[in-house]
């Protein structure tokens, strides 16, 4: 009798509990991470090359066109949105790369550097269908975006007029080993790593949304050498875990296919603007000089600017200074 009473009390409590609160579905779009363009039709987008990209334009078509390539891989262009002040003089195209940000999610077999090049080629052809203003196509890259820009320009040097490379990531496998390997080998005692792994028992990594949700955990702690601001934090919409992992596995040292985003870059002779933040301890002055000398020595006009008191988030925290340098660089 006593046992029956206890069981009844437990059942009643559970009933009251589950009835009094809404139970949420971790896989329902919008609960844990923002919706992608496939889940929210109000987001600005462009369907191209078999994908649907979260994409916005600013300024007047017909002006010289700057195409923005965000970092990661797998991040988004939210941190670049303070540069929209350039729209007074230029036509700006900002987009979340395939599988990243609020763009459509893809499985690994639909993501590769070749596909990324095809995506960018399709975007350029869309905004410059006659290739009539090739000299006015400017690729602006930040971090991985610079690797993306170099990779595309190496393949299609005649379709790009100028490059703006803001703290480029490793352009070759050797550069990764020399300058970046330590960054991607943090000690296991790091709190954020333990948090990140421990949380897998809270939300299993079973869907794109769940993977992206977990990925943001390390974003504000990874790479203290980047010296990111803690008072004016660089924002994100949504990180694309599968895109990041797939592209990195394609090129990181130890894989069968080694990265080389500079194969063919010597054909491109256009002006290149290099920018770094003075506080960045990874993309140091030595590293930038190495990049300029090793891969762009043939380029005559290659101004190099250091923005004071900024780290790797300079596109967000020093946007005014960067826009000034860009206006000085562009015709």
């Amino acid at each position: 009798m006593k046992r029956k009473i206890i069981i009844a009390i437990i059942v009643v409590c559970l009933t009251i509990f589950t009835g009094s609160c809404e139970l949420l579905d971790p896989d329902k779009p919008g609960n844990l991470v923002p919706r992608t363009v496939d889940e929210d039709s109000s987001l600005p987008n462009l369907e191209i090359n078999g994908t649907k990209l979260h994409l916005e334009t600013f300024g007047v078509p017909g002006n010289p066109c700057i195409i923005f390539l965000h970092g990661g891989p797998g991040i988004d262009y939210r941190s670049l949105t303070r540069l929209t002040g350039l729209s007074n003089n230029y036509y700006l195209v900002m987009f979340d790369q395939r599988g990243a940000g609020l763009s459509r999610r893809h499985d690994p077999d639909e993501i590769s550097t070749d596909i990324y090049i095809a995506d960018l080629n399709a975007i350029i052809d869309f905004y410059d269908p006659l290739n009539a203003v090739a000299n006015d196509i400017i690729l602006l890259g930040h971090s991985w975006g610079c690797q993306y820009a170099a990779m595309y320009t190496s393949r299609y040097p005649g379709k790009v007029g100028r490059l703006i490379l803001i703290e480029p990531g490793p352009l070759t496998d050797e550069d990764y080993d020399t300058y970046f390997a330590d960054l991607y080998s943090p000690p296991l005692s790091e709190e954020w790593i333990n948090d990140w792994v421990w949380s897998e028992d809270f939300i299993s990594p079973d869907t794109h949304a769940r993977l992206d949700y977990r990925e943001i955990q390390g974003a504000y702690n990874f790479g203290p050498e980047y010296n990111l601001s803690t008072t004016d934090r660089m924002p994100y919409w949504r990180l694309g875990k599968v895109a990041k992992a797939t592209l990195k596995s394609e090129g990181i040292s130890g894989s069968e296919t080694d990265w080389d985003f500079t194969d063919g870059i010597e054909i491109f002779a256009g002006p290149v603007l290099f920018i770094r933040g003075s506080l960045n301890q990874v993309m140091t002055d030595e590293y930038m000089q190495h990049v300029m000398a090793s891969y762009f020595s043939h380029t005559i006009n290659k101004p190099y600017v250091t923005i004071a008191d900024t780290g790797h988030d300079l596109v967000w925290v020093a946007s005014n200074e960067i826009m000034t340098e860009i206006r000085n660089f562009l015709p």
Binding site: C21, E22, L23, L24, D25, P26, G30, N31, L32, V33, P34, E200, D201, F202, I203, S204, I216, Y220, R233, M234, P235, Y236, W237, R238
Partner: peptide, 15 residues
């Protein structure tokens, strides 16, 4: 800094 509309609450069968 990321998602202002993230929903707090009880999530069912999360792992």
């Amino acid at each position: 800094n990321v998602y202002a509309d993230a929903v707090d609450g009880w999530y069912i069968s999360p792992a």
